[in-house]
Write a protein that binds this DNA or RNA. Structure first.
Length: 219
DNA sequence: AGGACGATTAACT
DNA sequence: GTTAATCGTCCTC
């Protein structure tokens, strides 16, 4: 279940991203992102609606940083945070809507050696892409990659690709509040795969503070 | 021109 | 569980 499996199929087309952020986020779980020799199976994502979403970087209109979000879907939006980390989104929705999905965590399914080199602090392989900045680091994303189009002018995939991977059944999808955001954090737009060991912590902390029992095992 | 803060992580108690 | 690290972005003088 590595690059071989991934590359037996075609990357997801641009149309895949031309839908509402939450829908794309749900459908991105279990997909495999390939960048610079490392493949990551997404296990946790977070949807941002764009202009209408108080938690989105795009909420207050376009800026130099967020310009790519306001462009067409199927592009990479990378931002710098806390003075030291990069995090990466996939732009989706309609052109000008500024919707995006933050890739929060995943399992490295190919290119382990490269990922380990890029993430020397990881104590185990499951920590290689466990968290948005860790995932971006494992895939070697930096600000220079922001604006990257997943497809060329003829619609052919480029160096950054998203493969179908393995579908995640509905009963394995968990949803909860978004992490680290101030506005509209109550929107349950963070989605993850139930019980997956590569899902970031914070999720666990949020669930701990939650009332009642989990609606699904592993959530 | 200046300051507050962030879609986090790693290291430590 | 707590906290330092660290600087681009954005908002306010």
């Amino acid at each position: 279940m590595g690059e071989q499996t991934s590359e037996l199929s075609e990357p997801l087309p641009r149309d895949f991203f031309m839908r509402p952020a939450l829908e794309v986020a749900r459908d991105l779980l279990g997909r495999v992102v390939c960048s610079r020799g490392v493949s990551v199976r997404l296990t946790e994502v977070e949807a941002y609606a764009g202009l209408d979403d108080p938690a989105s970087h795009a909420y207050r209109g376009p800026t130099t940083r967020t310009a790519v979000m306001f462009g067409p879907p199927g592009h990479l939006y990378v931002y710098f945070v806390y003075g030291m980390h990069w995090c990466a989104n996939l732009v989706c929705g309609n052109d000008g809507q500024a919707a995006a999905v933050l890739m929060r965590a995943g399992e490295v399914v190919d290119g382990l050696d490269a990922a380990r080199t890029r993430r020397p602090a990881a104590r185990s392989d499951r920590e290689l892409a466990r968290g948005p900045a860790r995932l971006a680091s494992a895939l070697a994303f930096t600000g220079a990659d922001s604006g990257t189009d997943l497809f060329d002018e003829k619609g052919r995939p480029g160096w950054l690709r998203v493969f179908p991977g393995t579908p995640v059944p509905e009963e394995s999808v968990c949803a909860g509040p978004r992490v680290g955001v101030v506005g509209a954090a109550e929107w349950p737009w963070r989605l993850w795969i139930a019980g997956d060991p590569t899902v970031s912590r914070y999720q666990r902390a949020a669930e701990r503070g939650r009332r009642g029992r989990p609606s699904r095992p592993g959530c």
